[in-house]
Each structure stands twice: as structure tokens, then as C-alpha cells.
Design a protein around this nucleic acid. Structure first.
Lengths: 194, 194
DNA sequence: TCTAATTTTCAGGAATTCCTGAAAGTTCAC
DNA sequence: GTGAACTTTCAGGAATTCCTGAAAATTAGA
């Protein structure tokens, strides 16, 4: 491995993290490297910096592409493909959330829906079905929420996260507000910031 | 495997899902089974229903305990240990979030902080450090948010999720509210929250 | 069309993770 | 303390996943 120290510890860390998740250590390292890189890298750059085989890098990049996590571009007069991550880190989060929904949440929801339309044969199955209904409700609620907030602009989203649970206070005043204010106002109020 | 059909497809599904995440198929299946069960189960029940070895079940339960995902209880006149999941599914989500924070997020944050105090030697490292700073900010924001909203009561939390991005509308009215309602709304008004 | 540069595929060896049975450990009733 | 009931540990085989090198495929220019 042929990397400056700062980069190296980041890359190694995400290699380990990767293998705790579904992705392999290799793929984690490749993504970490691309994320930090100043310029797009080609497969040989990556091979050289991380020190595993060219074919492994090729497979890794293929997997990252299937997750839509890397962008592909060409340099004039160079036939090789150059890879990079989105510059906007929130974009990465958004894509990750979408892909996980598609690959994990949606299949789970349809399995649950399927189970919920069956007729339970015993009290035990009846109970199991109730549990699945709870889980279905929870997953659907969280999913809807995440789809929904992803439509916000990054600035607004950040604002919402910063406010956190304090938004509850606003709820409590909401009714009063309706009575008093009535109109629709358009503005961004970014008062503080971490 | 010795299970009614509804339960079986749920258990198999979470076995597969489990292995996509860090946990093994076995552990996923055990948890799925416990989640659906009407009554707490002992290790032999699980062995019999899922059909893998007693020792494997023992290891699986140990891992689930280390995640605080199972509750342990005894029946009078029976020396065996009985396992169950929290009845409240939101409690499960809360525990999962806490444990993942502890095991994955916190180490990542400290790795990043460490990297951020180093002095970069080259423009490349400088850039890498900037990227890490972005990531640190993002993770910290999301973490704070999740810690924060976990303090809400379940009902309030559900309400907040249901509202989703529409809460933005409420922001827009916030300033006017201040004027009209007069209260001191600035700077942590932290009155309640279990 | 041919050639050289580059990328992809894939069989099979390496590494890792998972699972089991046997044995050791624990706990409680007597 | 002893033994029966139950649980945990752990070495090593089984299964899975990962990674590589060699070969095939693709691509662009001449």
C-alpha cells in the first residue's frame, strides 16, 4: 500500500467498516480512496496505491457502479476510464439510502405484505402476523419519511437535522400559529450553525 | 426446520438479510424467531425449531445479548433460560441505533478527529483532510440528531416522522410566531424529555 | 481489418467465517 | 459434596467469500 499516512488510516478504517457491512474490504478501501482523491483515478492508479490485483479492482469498481456510487469520466487523449465520487457528500448519502431501499427494504416490505394477506391457521400464527404488521408499519413509516425528506434541498435538510427534537416545541405552538398568522411566508432563516 | 409457513418465510428472509449485514444467518434467524414468538423460548426450543446445533444457538444468543437485543427471564420451577425480544418494536430500533453508534460511529468519529489534528504535508493531504472534515461534520450532525430524537416519546416520534418534510412549512412561520407569542424561543429550551 | 491498449471474466486457490460435536463449566436440589 | 440439568467453550472440518492470474473480450486508432 502506497499512500500518505492520513489517507492510509482512513482507507484502512473504511476497509474494516466495509467488511462489517455487506461490502468487501477491497470495495471499502477503493471507495475510501476515491472519496479522498483530489482527481479522478483510473483502475491502474488504484491498483498501484492499494496494492491488490488489477482484476480485483475491476470487480470492485463494477460493484461500486452498480450502487451508483462512482462517477465515470474520460480524459481527452486517454482511453482509460477515470472514477470519482460525487463531490457533494450529501449526494452520496442520498444514493446510499435509495439503493438500500431498493435492495433491502423493498423486498422486506413485499415479503411482509405477502405474509399479511395469508390466513393464519393457529393462534400462534395469528400472533406472528400481528408482529409482522407492526414491523411493516414501522418500516413503512421510516421509509416514507426518508423518501420525503430527501426531496428537501441540502440546506433545508441540514436545518431540519440541526433542530432535531426541538421541532416538537414548534408543533405545540402550531395551532396558535394558525389562528394568528394564517398566511404563507417564504424565507430561509439560518440563524446559527453548528 | 420445524415452523409454520408464515413464520418460516419471515425467519428465512431475516436469515438472508442478516448475512448481508454483519450478523450471521444463524443469528438473524434466531432473532426473527424470537421476534415472532408468542412466549419466550429457551435454547432447546430454538434448536428444535431452527434445526441447527445447540452450541450454535448458544453462540447466537450470546451475540444477541451483547447487542442487548434479547431479554432473559426464568420460569418458576424451570432452570432453563428463556429469551424474548422487547415487545415494543421501537425499543428494538432504539437499542440497535445505540449499539451501532457505539460500535461503528464512535470509532469512525475518533479516527476522523485524529486525522483532523494532524498537519497535512502536501496539497493532496490537505484536500484529503478537507474531505474528512466534511464527513466528520455530516456524521456528527446525523448522530446528534438521532441521539436527540431518541429522547422523544414514541408517540411524539411517530408524529414527527409522519410530518416529514412538511415540518419545513412550520419553520417558515417560526419567526412570526416569535413576534406574536412573545416567548423566549432562542437557545436551548430544554424543559422535558424523558 | 489489424493491433495495441485497456477492461472484464472466471476457474480455482487462499482466506475467512460459520457451524458442529465433544468436553468442560456452571448451577441447583438434595 | 454429588449428580443431574443445563450452558458455554473451542478445535477443527464445512461452507462461503475473497482474490488472483491467465485468458478472453472490447475498444479505438491506423
Amino acid at each position: 500500500m502506497n499512500l500518505p499516512p492520513l489517507t492510509q488510516s482512513f482507507v484502512l478504517h473504511f476497509g474494516e467498516m466495509g467488511s462489517r457491512w455487506g461490502i468487501s474490504r477491497t470495495v471499502g478501501q477503493i471507495y475510501a480512496l476515491l472519496f479522498l482523491a483530489e482527481e479522478p483515478l483510473n483502475a491502474d492508479d488504484i491498483t498501484e496505491k492499494l496494492g491488490f490485483s488489477r482484476s480485483n479492482v475491476s470487480m470492485g469498481l463494477k460493484e461500486l457502479s452498480s450502487w451508483r456510487l462512482v462517477k465515470l469520466q474520460h480524459k481527452p487523449g486517454d482511453r482509460r476510464e477515470y472514477f470519482s465520487t460525487p463531490e457533494d457528500i450529501w449526494e452520496i448519502v442520498r444514493i446510499l439510502a435509495e439503493e438500500r431501499r431498493k435492495r433491502e427494504i423493498d423486498p422486506t416490505l413485499s415479503m411482509l405484505r405477502q405474509a399479511l394477506v395469508e390466513t393464519p391457521a393457529t393462534p400462534g400464527e395469528r400472533h406472528a402476523q400481528d408482529r409482522m404488521a407492526e414491523m411493516h408499519g414501522l418500516i413503512e413509516l421510516i421509509t416514507r419519511w426518508s423518501v420525503d425528506i430527501q426531496k428537501l434541498e441540502t440546506e433545508t435538510l441540514i436545518q431540519l437535522l440541526e433542530v432535531g427534537s426541538k421541532v416538537q416545541k414548534v408543533f405545540e405552538m402550531k395551532d396558535r400559529l394558525k389562528v394568528v398568522a394564517g398566511g404563507k411566508s417564504r424565507r430561509r432563516t439560518r440563524t446559527e450553525g453548528q
